[in-house]
Simulated assay, not measured.
Amino acid sequence: MVPGGSAEKKADGKQAAKESSIRIPNPNFEKMKEDILYHFALGTGTHNFPALFGDVKFVCIGGSPLRMKAFIGYIAAQLGIAKPRNDFPNICAATDRYAMYKAGPVLAVSHGIGMPSAAIMLHELIKLLHHSQCSNVIIIRLGTSGGIGLEPGSVVITKQAVNAAFKPQLEQVILGKSIFRSTTLDKELAEELLECGKELNQFNTVAGNTLCTLDFYEGQARLDGAICSFTNEEKMKYLKAADKAGVKNIEMESSVVAAMCNLTGIKGAVVCVTILDRLQGDQITTSHEGLEEFESRPQKLVGHFIKKRLTQK
């Protein structure tokens, strides 16, 4: 027995109350002798996860590897992490599935397009964080989206990710049965990010629901895909119904981010910039330079949030 007995346990209990560990709701997990994170090209038998990732507190995820590489350089500069140019190597360079970069307590990981790709990445990311003995981790998706009634360039903090029927749930078919999982995101974190947007005061920042779809064209009520099974009138009726349901933007990953964070006890958020107003059309007409500036806005907001959080400690 450890000297001090009950006093030591009491102190440990207080520490546990302060720290939020990562849950792995899989009864088979602890039986694994070795865990190979295939799509990251990492494994518990070949890498020392606590040494590599034990200090991670913020994980920022986004679709594009290039965008994540740009973000890690940006956040490193914001946090004053001095390293030579391009000295943030891709930790997952042995695979072409995803890219991963690290700067101090911040990990940036690409997730590809759509919920299936994001889900695969999140399964392995969450296991990586657990193996690394991380605690109090926050996962934030940064991305682009189509707006609903918002000027292009607005940044949306997601309150709930909703499905095509505007319900805050993700349906997954597992062993032939439909399982429904909550897609409501952490309220306090969303409010804190919204406040950061107001503090920056550089662009319009709002909170609202995000419609998460299974594809970019018909699923998002677009008329410009290779296939279209509805009229412009039907499209507008649907988008106006989304607006009435509190939907501020449309993208393709928020539901799985919310569901998996909820199941594993991780605080999650989604911060996306709108690159067009879908009530005005389907085609993106903003210039390349304008889009690049829009895409930097979630980075600036989340960078401000991370820097503020670290300064408060």
Rank of each mutant, 00 (worst) to 15 (best):
P3V: 04
S6M: 15
A11P: 00
D12A: 12
K14T: 07
Q15I: 11
E19Q: 15
I24H: 01
E30S: 15
K31L: 05
E34C: 11
D35E: 01
D35C: 05
D35W: 10
I36N: 14
D55E: 13
D55P: 00
V56H: 02
G63I: 13
A70Q: 15
I72E: 14
A76I: 11
L79I: 01
G80Y: 13
K83H: 14
D87G: 11
F88I: 03
F88N: 09
A93Y: 09
A93Q: 04
A94Y: 09
T95V: 13
Y98R: 13
A99G: 07
M100G: 06
M100Y: 00
Y101K: 06
V106F: 02
V109W: 05
H111V: 06
G112L: 13
G114Q: 05
S117K: 14
M121E: 01
L122A: 10
L125F: 07
K127C: 03
S132P: 00
S132Q: 02
Q133C: 11
C134F: 01
N136I: 06
N136S: 08
V137T: 01
T144P: 01
S145Q: 07
G147W: 03
G149H: 04
E151V: 07
E151A: 12
P152D: 06
P152W: 08
S154Q: 05
I157Y: 10
T158Y: 08
N163K: 12
N163S: 13
F166A: 11
L170W: 09
I179V: 13
R181T: 10
K187V: 14
E188Q: 15
E188W: 02
L189C: 03
L189Q: 03
E191F: 05
L194I: 06
E195H: 10
C196E: 14
E199H: 11
N209F: 03
C212V: 05
F216S: 11
E218I: 08
Q220M: 03
A221V: 04
R222I: 06
C228Y: 07
C228I: 12
M236V: 11
K240H: 14
A241T: 13
K244L: 05
I250R: 02
A259H: 00
C261H: 00
N262H: 11
N262R: 10
T264F: 01
K267L: 10
V271T: 05
V271F: 00
C272Q: 04
T274Y: 02
L276C: 09
D277C: 01
Q283W: 00
G290H: 06
L291W: 08
L291I: 11
E292I: 11
E293H: 05
S296K: 15
P298A: 14
L301I: 14
I306C: 04
R309V: 00
L310G: 02
